[in-house]
Design a protein around this nucleic acid. Structure first.
Ligand SMILES: [Mn+2]
Ligand SMILES: [Mn+2]
Ligand SMILES: [Mn+2]
Ligand SMILES: [Mn+2]
Lengths: 227, 227
DNA sequence: GTTCAAAGTTAGGCATGCCATAATTTCGGC
DNA sequence: GCCGAAATTATGGCATGCCTAACTTTGAAC
């Protein structure tokens, strides 16, 4: 029987490009600009352009020259697979090994490319097939379905509004540590007590304590509003 | 202040060469033949020769052309560091994630090169600073001390001898699975019941059951003899 | 002491992978 | 249609790590 063309295992860089395209198109299906990709991955546009061409040849993306890239089905699968690895690892490291939540991201960023399917499965089972990572990001299911719920930012709420803090970017350790020190984590209910205009801080009550959340921070905290 | 020469992080290949030199010299301090290294790593002698030259230039090994390689202090540290990672990971995967002991080796072989110092430490603490991995191999301590106790092979024992099975190579999954199926693991006490000559099998009683251990297998099972 | 096979090294290449700079092309709004 | 921004191509660099073929060295046998 003739050997199949046998796709070589994707490299770390290829996986990172797939993830980046997914993140920038926000569901992997919209076209992403080369420049945006280059900026996110901290390479020159020329490098991103070349790499995108390779992803296309590999069947992971469709590249319409001068009009952006989007992931193919296979590319989307790859991105979601790596994201599943990443988020499962983050949660696992936090829960089982006690790694502080502001540091799980960097560890997962490396391990995600190396985790075997067998370990992925064992971890998922051990964690009880979790739906969210420590930062509130949804974890793609075993069959790579992912549900991205639309959210508001805490900064957009006016005094009197109540809601639940559900999600925050995992990439800024300082913000995460700041929140951790105050015991604020995704899942926490709050009420807006006061708010200053023009990017000023929001004052939010979590439990008994009122916290001051700077405009920058408040605009990165994603919330579900209670209606 | 002038920048230090700043050693680049060792690559996976470099780490594997250091480990191999350590294993072949059996304490990292005896000269190892290029050919032996090449065979173990499954590359040509020419490739091993070139690589050994690089390790020398990196200060990880001393290469006396035509007379073998040995590790420098730094090379020995590197080898032991990676071995510590490997063995801690094997034990961790077996204990905490339930990976069968015939499969932990391959997983650890990859992860050992990627494990951060922080995770290494958390794992070590979680396991209670263990001294041996699931195959009975000693785990280098935090400060990279390692104790390799001399052992006999089970095959060398005559009927009537008693002892404890303490160690077996982690690299042959079939042997490991065979032993696992029979409930035989390092730490188990036994007595030799019978033995056939010329590489024939040994018959050993572990607990209540007598097991037949082929010559090949019996010669790879390391034991401490009760005197 | 010579010889000669085995062990080891060097020379020269090749493949992969990823990125950079510089020059050029294309696009799309005006 | 012009023109600046966006993107692409053209080239090349560099790191890694492997190979084959040709050469050198070693050391043991005689
Ligand atoms: Mn997976
Ligand atoms: Mn996360
Ligand atoms: Mn270490
Ligand atoms: Mn082992």
């Amino acid at each position: 029987m003739p050997l199949e063309p046998k796709t070589p295992a994707p490299t770390v860089a290829v996986e990172d490009y797939a993830k980046a395209i997914y993140a920038l198109s926000h569901d992997g299906r919209d076209a992403v600009a080369t420049t945006a990709l280059a900026e996110r991955l901290d390479v020159t546009p020329a490098s991103a352009s070349a790499m995108v061409k390779r992803l296309d040849e590999m069947g992971l993306a469709r590249h319409a020259p001068y009009h952006g890239v989007e992931l193919t089905d296979r590319g989307l699968q790859l991105a979601l697979e790596v994201i599943r690895h990443h988020r499962l690892l983050e949660l696992y490291l936090a829960e089982s090994l006690g790694v502080p939540w502001d540091r799980v991201h960097d560890e997962a960023e490396v391990l995600e490319h190396v985790l075997s399917e067998e370990l992925e499965e064992l971890i998922a089972v051990k964690l009880g097939d979790p739906e969210r990572d420590p930062h509130g990001d949804p974890i793609p299911s075993r069959d790579l379905e992912i549900v991205e719920l639309p959210t508001d930012t805490l900064a957009s709420l006016e005094p009197g509004a109540r809601g639940r803090f559900v999600r925050i970017s995992d990439s800024d350790p300082h913000m995460l540590r700041y929140l951790a020190e105050r015991g604020i984590a995704p899942g926490a209910d709050f009420e807006i007590v006061d708010k200053q205009p023009f990017g000023g801080p929001s004052f939010a009550r979590f439990g008994d304590a009122v916290h001051v959340l700077g405009g920058e921070l408040a605009s990165r905290m994603r919330v579900e509003v209670e209606r």
